[in-house]
Design a protein around this nucleic acid. Structure first.
Length: 484
RNA sequence: GGCGCGGUACCCAAGUGGUAAGGGAGAGGUCUGCAAAACCUUUAUGCGCCGGUUCGAUCCCGGCCCGCGCCUCCA
């Protein structure tokens, strides 16, 4: 069964076949960096992270490009309003590029915490002004755009396929228009490619049409095609950007090149809070930095992957708590398995565990092949977890070989693909080593105390450690400990 | 008004034309000094409502109700 991907362009699942065998070019709309990232960003980029990881896992060489929007994204109607970055810079009384730089760093910091692999290229819009101007010139040359008072607009009437991605027609939009039409535009659906800058505008660049700055949509066309070619395999982004942003990208790109822009469009759904969309303009958003104070970033990642990327995800404390406990269950299994492997390495065991790992592997891959169904893939991991726990609780002690085989499956699927299972040492810093030695000593002392049945003293140690965030677990063959 | 999505147990959330994954919470049990962890058993005769197609529908079709998204910036 080959990989099936839901393509917004055709509104159905399709077998995934990249244009060049073995290689995938993928572009995902990145953040506009004028504030800290929120849960919505997390859902989007964690989802695409899982997609990239899986594509690589099944053997594709993926070039993953994700832009940073640091200019041109306006606060209001796509062709009016103020530049978001510049607005924030005025509020904070610092240079716009300082705002962009600060929140770009903040963004990557949060994504790193979530275990999101960095894109291969993270181009800045402000660093690609010339590429954007080139496309605009091409569009003017071909008659797909027009100049009005120093600004340049895309002429929607010249692209008869406008609306094919979002499934709407220009006529439909006129009827429901809620926004006052910019008088410079020939048609309400026309959109800005280049905006003339007022003298006080900080971010402006010279262009054939005078000083100005680029419209929002053009940056993605310029940067994606620069690094991935005129036609590339996957373009991803949030559902709310399907229209107008992505529709405009298609229009301007295909008019400029005369070729198909993107083969597969992948849109991820929104995060809601109490059933309502979470958005910057609604003021009900939760920043990741705040969320991480209450929940481990990997718990947030797990929570996100437990629902499908095309479903909405309702963010709430109760649900997050459920995710926390479930995630810990998975981690416990993996830790216990590692401990058992350590023991097995010191003993001569020959018993093989009867566990059908290939079945787990094929179930996992079938889930991911079906439009990246991470919730189902995680369910497979839980099934494996339960069977592993059952094996570990048996009297029989299994060989290091059969235990390691199980660990490999956890590492591959839980680690490499889903990015949930990380760590398990390899490198131990001196602090970690000291901690381990101290814990070993404490546990030994407590064991002595317990043989003398001095329970209150024994519990004092356990309760005290609990206050430091360390949990002791007494098992048949000794006491284990963990953080949390 | 136009376009689109969803309504699955107490909560989160997959899914299939043949009788409902997984996680959390709850209940009972095993283990244990106790706790924690883990394991076993259990928890929707039912998948918004009403019709239709079918041997059979939660899944297909039609209608209705409710919620949500896009059509203005947003991942």
């Amino acid at each position: 069964m080959a990989l099936q991907v839901y393509n917004t362009l055709t509104r159905q699942k399709e077998e995934f076949t990249p244009q060049r065998e073995g290689r995938v070019g993928m572009y995902v709309c990145g953040p506009t960096v004028y504030g800290h990232s929120h849960i919505g960003h997390a859902k989007s980029y964690v989802s695409f992270d899982a997609i990239v990881r899986y594509l690589r896992f099944i053997g594709y060489k993926v070039l993953y490009v994700q832009n940073i929007t640091d200019v041109g994204h306006l606060t209001d109607d796509a062709d009016e309003g103020e530049d978001k970055i510049e607005k924030q810079s005025k509020l904070d009384r610092v240079h716009p590029m300082q705002i962009a730089e600060m929140y770009t760093r903040s963004y990557f910091e949060d994504m790193d915490s979530l275990g999101v692999l960095r894109p291969d290229i993270a181009p800045r819009a402000s660093g690609h002004i010339t590429e954007q101007i080139e496309i605009i010139e091409e569009l003017l040359k071909k008659g797909n755009a027009y100049i009005a008072h120093g600004s340049v607009y895309f002429d929607v009437s010249k692209f008869k396929e406008y609306g094919k991605l979002s499934g709407r027609s220009v006529e439909d939009m006129e009827a429901g228009s809620r926004v006052e039409v910019n008088p410079e535009k020939h048609h309400p659906a026309d959109f800005a490619l280049w905006k003339k800058a007022q003298p006080e505008h900080i971010m402006q660049w010279p262009s054939p049409w005078g000083k100005g700055y680029p419209g929002w949509h053009i940056e993605c066309s310029a940067m994606s095609m620069k690094y991935l070619g005129d036609t590339f395999d996957i373009h991803g982004g949030g559902l709310e950007n399907q229209f107008p942003h992505h529709e405009c990208e298609v229009a301007q790109s295909e008019c400029a090149t005369g070729k198909q822009f993107v083969k597969y469009w992948i849109h991820n759904n929104m995060v809601t809070v109490n059933g309502q969309k979470m958005g910057k303009s609604l003021g009900n958003f939760v920043t990741l930095k705040d969320a991480f104070k209450k929940f481990d970033p990997l718990v947030v990642r797990f929570f996100i992957l437990q629902s499908h990327y095309r479903s909405t995800l309702d963010f709430g404390d109760e649900a997050l708590h459920g995710a926390k406990v479930g995630f810990e269950k998975l981690q416990n299994t993996f830790r216990n398995l590692n401990e058992e492997i350590t023991k097995a390495s010191r003993e001569n065991r020959t018993e093989e565990a009867a566990i059908d790992l290939p079945v787990y592997e094929s179930r996992f891959r079938a889930a991911m092949d079906d439009d990246f169904n991470t919730p189902q893939a995680i369910a497979v991991l839980f099934d494996l977890s339960r069977e592993t726990n059952a094996l570990l609780s048996l009297e029989t002690k299994f060989s290091i070989g059969s235990l390691s085989a199980i660990r490999e499956v956890f590492r591959k699927f839980g680690g490499t693909v889903l990015g949930l299972i990380t760590g398990e040492s390899g490198v131990t810093s001196t602090d970690v080593q000291l901690e381990a030695d101290l814990m070993k000593l404490l546990i030994e002392v407590r064991a002595d105390v317990r043989t003398q049945k001095l329970w209150s003293l024994s519990d004092k140690i356990r309760d005290g450690l609990k206050n430091f965030g360390i949990t002791l677990e007494d098992k048949k063959d000794g006491t284990g400990w963990r953080r949390g």
